[in-house]
């Protein structure tokens, strides 16, 4: 028996927004520690990793590990039937071929349930080694979304360069060049509005704007986002999900042919 009840059901709706542009289907791996999902986008350029800890749920029960293969388009349709204020419960029997989503209104006067067929998925799991990144940059998530949107107009690729002075995002294309420099915040009233850079060595890497823009679909999950970079390894874009977990995106840098 698996059962996970989330008081703040809107978080699951936001998680779905953060996943569905990159992934058509994915396996939700449930254990007594919580729910994890790891999947590559169809082109194998980027990797998405979601972690929702058991403690973050109001009620959590997982008698035996199970992997639920879900079509995210179908799951998204079902979650659209939940109001933002609803409490959401995900339920499945052991070895079942369906999962049930239960939506309760806050005052319990409306309860809906939707059953969805599960899929058999060939899972590909990648091992991600522990990495000490040369640069980590924390910035407001809305600022990062704006930068990705603005620079996408100039070209397909964006260069992210981090030095001790700050971080520079640039893109070049037919119409010209765009550069956006962010300096580290000197002082801030609110932690989530700060730009904070930790740097061991300067790094400059090139990434496809298309994927960065897809990652920013997670913006509503967190007020800030962390970018981690080292030379010649994938960028990590991490959005924390309140007290419950995180979603991380790994994007391979572009390489010269």
């Amino acid at each position: 028996m698996f059962e996970a009840r989330l008081l703040q059901g809107s978080l699951l709706k936001k998680v779905m927004e953060a996943l569905k542009e990159l992934l058509n289907e994915a396996a939700w791996d449930c254990s007594d520690a919580g729910i994890q999902l790891q999947a590559m986008d169809n082109s194998h350029v980027s990797l998405v990793s979601l972690n929702l800890r058991a403690e973050g749920f109001d009620k959590y029960r997982c008698d035996r590990n199970l992997s639920m293969g879900m079509n995210l388009g179908s799951m998204s349709k079902i979650l659209k039937c939940a109001s933002n204020e609803d409490i959401i419960t995900i339920k499945a029997q052991d070895n079942a071929d369906t999962v049930t989503f239960v939506f309760e209104s806050p005052d319990q006067d409306k309860v809906s349930d939707y059953e969805m067929k599960l899929m058999n998925l060939d899972q590909e799991h990648l091992g991600i080694p522990e990495t000490d990144y040369a640069c980590t940059i924390r910035l407001p998530s809305s600022e990062f979304a704006r930068i990705c949107r603005d620079l996408s107009q100039f070209g397909e690729s964006m260069v992210i360069s981090c030095t001790k002075e700050g971080v520079r995002f640039s893109a070049t294309g037919d119409i010209g060049t765009g550069n956006i420099k962010l300096a580290q915040s000197a002082k801030v009233d609110k932690e989530e509005e700060a730009v904070v850079i930790e740097m061991q060595e300067p790094v400059s890497l090139t990434f496809a704007c298309r994927y960065l823009n897809s990652f920013t679909k997670a913006t509503s999950l967190s007020k800030s986002v962390q970018l981690s970079m080292s030379p010649e390894v994938p960028l990590v874009v991490e959005y924390k999900i309140e007290d419950i977990g995180h979603v991380r995106y790994y994007l391979a840098p572009k390489i010269e042919d």
């Binding site: 990648l126 091992g127 080694p129 391979a252 840098p253």
Partner: peptide, 14 residues
């Protein structure tokens, strides 16, 4: 010409 590298170039299947 630039090429987009794949994530499987860096991380391996487990």
């Amino acid at each position: 010409k630039e090429l987009q590298s794949k994530i499987t170039k860096y991380y391996y299947h487990i």
